[in-house]
């Protein structure tokens, strides 16, 4: 009664090890600094928090995109929602940014590594799903990028990044609408 997964039998590199704890800690420190500045200066809330939030969105979004760390997408989305609350007209640029990051997720090698590692942990799901994670030697760079690309991953990544700011924008709109009625 011995079964060995064909994927496991191949050498599978581990997922990218991004020190996400430190990244989140740095984000928390940045928010803390913004809070202190807000309390100790007379500058408007928006002016103080906006740059910090933007930095968080970019930094965590890049961690999500390049490091394939799901929780970083959560944090980036939350920071983006904060941006929308601070400055509602940032929604459209944020969605464009989310789309660009999602496209990056479609090509970033980190995702392929995570998927290969995950495939080694359990039953593979489908031929299509497994195709990009099977290492193939002697491929051109263009072919490698095509192998890595997954449209469903790109769309899913976009939803994760865009959901929070869209929810925040809809909430603001709804509150405004109910108050104006």
């Amino acid at each position: 009664m011995t079964a060995v997964s064909p994927v496991r039998s191949a050498t599978v590199a581990g997922p990218p090890r991004v020190p996400i704890r430190w990244a989140l800690l740095a984000g928390a420190v940045a928010l803390g600094v913004q809070g202190v500045v807000l309390l100790t200066t007379d500058r408007p809330v928006r002016d103080v928090l906006l740059p910090g939030h933007l930095a968080l969105v970019v930094a965590l979004g890049l961690v999500f995109c390049l490091g394939a760390v799901t929780v970083a997408g959560f944090a980036a989305g939350a920071a983006a929602a904060g941006l929308v609350v601070l400055q509602p007209d940032t929604l459209l640029p944020l969605l464009v940014g989310a789309a660009l990051l999602a496209l990056g997720c479609g090509l970033a090698p980190g995702w392929t590594r995570v998927e290969a590692w995950q495939a080694a942990q359990s039953h593979p799901l489908s031929a299509d799903a497994e195709a990009p994670v099977v290492p193939v030697a002697d491929r051109s760079r263009g072919q490698q990028l095509r192998d890595r690309w997954r449209s469903d991953r790109v769309f899913a990544a976009f939803l994760v990044l865009a959901f929070h700011p869209v929810l925040a924008a809809c909430s603001l709109w709804f509150i405004d609408w109910t108050q104006r009625r």
Binding site: T70, G73, F74, G77, E115, Q118, A119, S122, L125, A129, R150, D152, R153, F155, A156, L159, V160, F163, H164, L167, S171, F174
Partner: peptide, 30 residues
């Protein structure tokens, strides 16, 4: 707000749920 936030959280957790197992095709259904 509670209803909205609660549903937001549930949707979001479901969005993330597709990532661990590469079931990206399920994510939009969240």
């Amino acid at each position: 707000a509670n209803l909205l936030l609660g549903n937001g959280v549930i949707i979001y957790l479901s969005l993330l749920a597709g990532f661990k197992r590469r079931t990206y095709g399920l994510v939009p259904f969240a």
